[in-house]
């Protein structure tokens, strides 16, 4: 198990990477409230351990194993934060601070239980950024809710949102997030777990995406599409 400090770094790099750029020393130093030289040192260590790819002056990017940890922590943060705010009625800032502390000690079963309690939250308090999907081995949320916490098995591969495919890239549906009706609507149109989809086009300004599935072309609104997660060949 990596240390809390490592988790914090990975989480911060993830946040910056998600914005589409490499994490630079100064930015990380600001986010984590530490001095730039110690950031540089830490980045070198993380590179040695295989969590990030770091090039001086260019910044850091997460590797697959780093990404896996970062996603997990970011998810736990988001879930705990929602719990503290939605249920315990803490102020946003207070909830955020507290979540930063609790995210490292929250177990996987507790995470799943909280997710069910909160009605499978999809957006974090922070600017409605999506909470990453869980790593439970299920094909949708209803299944998860219907099984005992002790039965929870882990996924081997990390699925990513269909919206993050590149134009022309192919993925296989692994998980659909959301309520019964949404899942049904998508699967009736052929978006079932195991089905192969190709991203054809993506509308600007956060508009819908166009995909090809089972020989038909579909446009799916961004919100709906963000609930569909796929696995790709490159594993990323």
């Amino acid at each position: 198990m990596e240390s809390e400090n490592v988790q914090e770094y990975l989480e911060a790099i993830y946040t910056i990477n998600e914005g589409g750029k490499s994490a630079e020393t100064v930015e990380l130093a600001n986010m984590l409230n530490v001095k730039p030289p110690s950031v540089t040192e830490m980045l070198k260590r993380l590179t040695e351990e295989g969590y990030v790819d770091y090039e001086p002056y260019k910044g850091a990017k997460l590797t697959e194993s780093g990404l896996r940890i970062a996603v997990k922590i970011t998810r736990k943060h988001g879930i705990v934060e929602r719990f503290l705010h939605d249920i315990l009625k803490l102020e946003r800032e207070e909830a955020h601070q507290q979540a930063c502390l609790m995210e490292h000690s929250l177990g996987d079963k507790a995470e799943a239980a909280l997710c069910r309690l909160l009605g499978r939250p999809e957006k974090s308090l922070n600017n409605d950024k999506p909470i990453p999907p869980c790593d439970v081995q299920v094909s949708n949320c209803i299944e998860c809710e219907e099984m005992a916490l002790n039965d929870i098995k882990k996924r081997i591969r990390r699925p990513k949102a269909i919206t993050s495919l590149k134009r022309g890239q192919v993925g296989v549906i692994a998980f659909i997030r959301g309520g019964r009706q949404g899942v049904k609507r998508l699967s009736d149109l052929g978006l079932t777990v195991g089905a192969q989809v190709t991203l054809l086009n993506s509308a600007p300004f956060g508009g819908p995406i166009e995909i090809s599935v089972r020989g038909s072309k579909l446009a799916i609104g961004r919100g709906l599409a963000n609930k569909v997660f796929v696995e790709t060949n490159d594993g990323l």
Binding site: E143, M147, T192, G194, R214
Partner: peptide
């Protein structure tokens, strides 16, 4: 569910597509 690790409804939908 025990067999497939998926809800019956999903299994049926997926298999129906499989038949198609």
């Amino acid at each position: 569910f025990e067999i497939h690790g998926e809800s019956a409804s999903n299994v049926i939908t997926a298999e129906r597509y499989g038949v198609a």
